[in-house]
Design a protein around this nucleic acid. Structure first.
Length: 308
DNA sequence: ATTTAGACCTGTCAGC
DNA sequence: TGCTGACAGGTCTAAA
């Protein structure tokens, strides 16, 4: 679900709200969500640590903890963070013997007095709850259970994040770097953009948007781009990610910010999920095709497969 | 070296 | 109304 802009937006919200807080307790409702280390160690080691900072690397959210540890969170398709004000507790009266329902939807959280005090908050599908010592709760919700939370010592950060290419906003992601990486691959350009070792953080939405921005067909072979096209693509990747962050991320279905609110970038995409609608640039109808088992959206008028 | 199919999971929506 | 299949912001593994 979340790509770089969604993770970055959430990281900024977390940075402004939980740095300095202490995790008093952790509850895990779906064991496989914890990817490292084993569950018992995770539960033991996370408690009583102070949150020192929040960072992002590619699509990973990193929460630095006291004692030189950090949490790495990958939300995969449907993972979200939700911050609850003090007073919200698990509604034990709703827990039944229906283990299947509990395993699927997780616990239900209710505000202290039984009345919502601000926004409505969807607390279903909670897989992990971090209880903060000031009474707040940070929930990791994830209907499809693909998301992973790991605890690593600071000196093993390289191991925890192995295989990640340069940050799109970093100094190593240059036109020269992109030119070299694309030239030594013989795959479709859409696939290349989704390869996290080439550049970290681009997913299906922003890959399609970046290719539209650069007027490049998603099936073009990566080593066939002209220098001008690589420059446009480099610029396109950076600009669509920047706009995504500015709009608070793209919410088609599941993505929500820390307060449970949808992102606004949905109203600013040009091709993603827009099949059948007119291209905002040339008026041709946007098409959808399947590339590498993922849907790809493009304008057949602006993004020609054959370079004339 | 790439590509493809299948896992991992649950929900929604279109069509019959 | 109920069932079936397609599809969903991701990534990994095995087999071709």
């Amino acid at each position: 679900m979340p790509e770089l802009p969604e993770v970055e937006y959430t990281a900024r919200q977390l940075r402004a709200s939980i740095v300095g807080a202490t995790i008093s307790n952790v509850q895990v409702f779906w064991e496989r969500t914890v990817g490292h280390p084993d569950l018992a160690t995770f539960l033991l080691e996370v408690s009583e640590r102070r949150i020192e900072g929040v960072r992002r690397r590619g699509k990973f959210l990193l929460i630095d903890l006291s004692g030189d540890f950090f949490l790495s969170i990958h939300r995969r398709m449907t993972g979200n963070f939700l911050l609850l004000p003090p007073g919200w507790q698990i509604d034990t009266s709703l827990r039944t013997d229906d283990v299947a329902t509990w395993n699927t939807r997780g616990p239900t959280f209710m505000p202290e007095n039984g009345v919502e005090n601000s926004h409505s908050r969807e607390t279903s599908y909670c897989r992990v709850s971090f209880d903060l010592s000031d009474g707040r709760r940070l929930l990791f919700t994830d209907p499809r259970k693909f998301g992973r939370i790991e605890l690593w010592s600071a000196q093993r950060e390289a191991e925890a994040l192995r295989g990640l290419g340069p940050e799109p906003f970093g100094s190593t992601f240059t036109v020269e770097y992109l030119t070299g990486e694309l030239a030594r691959r013989r795959i479709g350009i859409k696939q290349a953009l989704l390869d996290q070792t080439l550049v970290a953080g681009v997913g299906n939405i922003y890959a399609d948007e970046a290719l539209f921005s650069a007027s490049i067909h998603p099936l073009r072979r990566s080593d066939s781009l002209t220098p001008a096209e690589v420059r446009l693509l480099h610029e396109g990747v950076i600009s669509v990610l920047t706009l995504g962050i500015e709009h608070g991320g793209t919410s088609f279905n599941d993505y929500r910010d820390l307060w449970g609110e949808a992102g606004d970038n949905y109203n600013h995409v040009h091709v993603y999920k827009q099949a059948g609608k007119p291209c905002p640039r040339c008026g041709s109808l946007i098409e959808r095709m399947v590339i590498a088992q993922r849907s790809a959206h493009f304008c057949p008028g602006c993004q020609k497969l054959i370079v004339l």
